[in-house]
Design a protein around this nucleic acid. Sequence first.
DNA 1: ATGCCTGCAAAGCTTTTGCAGATGC
DNA 2: GCATCTGCAAAAGCTTTGCAGGCAT
Lengths: 143, 143
Amino acid sequence: MESSDLRKAGLKVTLPRVKILEILAGSHGRHLSAEDIYRVLRDQSEDIGLATVYRVLTQFEAAALVKRHHFEGGTAVFELNEGEHHDHIVCLDCGHVEEFMDSGIEQRQTSVARRSGFEIEEHSLILYGRCRREHCPHRPKRG
Amino acid sequence: MESSDLRKAGLKVTLPRVKILEILAGSHGRHLSAEDIYRVLRDQSEDIGLATVYRVLTQFEAAALVKRHHFEGGTAVFELNEGEHHDHIVCLDCGHVEEFMDSGIEQRQTSVARRSGFEIEEHSLILYGRCRREHCPHRPKRG
DNA sequence: ATGCCTGCAAAGCTTTTGCAGATGC
DNA sequence: GCATCTGCAAAAGCTTTGCAGGCAT
């Protein structure tokens, strides 16, 4: 994920865009909100406005460079679009997010939709639960 | 769905609450936003504030009288909680919502979660597609 | 040089909250 | 009578937009 991807998407290679891509790439699968990214930028002493973060993320989404998700709680989170589709399990205690893909679920979705006379364009599947790990601090906020 | 349900939930039987229950019950499965309900109330010349609609819906949700869903677009929609669980297919053209339940999907969700070390508390599954019906006007706004 | 980008501030939209008065039980 | 409830208006939270200047190509 680099500058060439920006060019390919018809976007000029600018500092904010490159920085935001880097942050998403370095998030190790964590799903970041606009505010999260903005905070990281400030920590790096980058002079980039929150509005720009939103604008860039929206452009990235339109260019299919990132995916936007609406987990519980009003704020959207973003992750790099690595190509292969997956769904999410979110821990209600610690906010930890795990990704999964189950072709059985995908298939049944398609047939359920067809049975109802729909042609699926996309879907959103989010499981909410408890991960019960040692590191899980039973705090409801994302770390 | 009547006054007794309110009492059972520890809520006083007041005009706004009864009216809102009625509107949800009379929506024939349509999923209404707070604003939708507020509009219906105004049409009925009921002098009930939008803040009250939100408050009542939140209380109803806590009392498990209604379910809240976040379909695409920032606004939440509500439906009566009739007991049996189901998921949703939303038409991207006309906003038509169909409900479904597939025990195969439910089962696989549980096993996928267990495999990841989670215990599922709840889930959100929404399919987005095109219903392609005669009545489907290809307009993106909810009718 | 030109047109796309950005920062800032202000606005937009949905939802929540504070408060004084009203209402159910 | 007393606690709960409601209307209004104001605030809050997330996100978008207008505008004037800045930067990539």
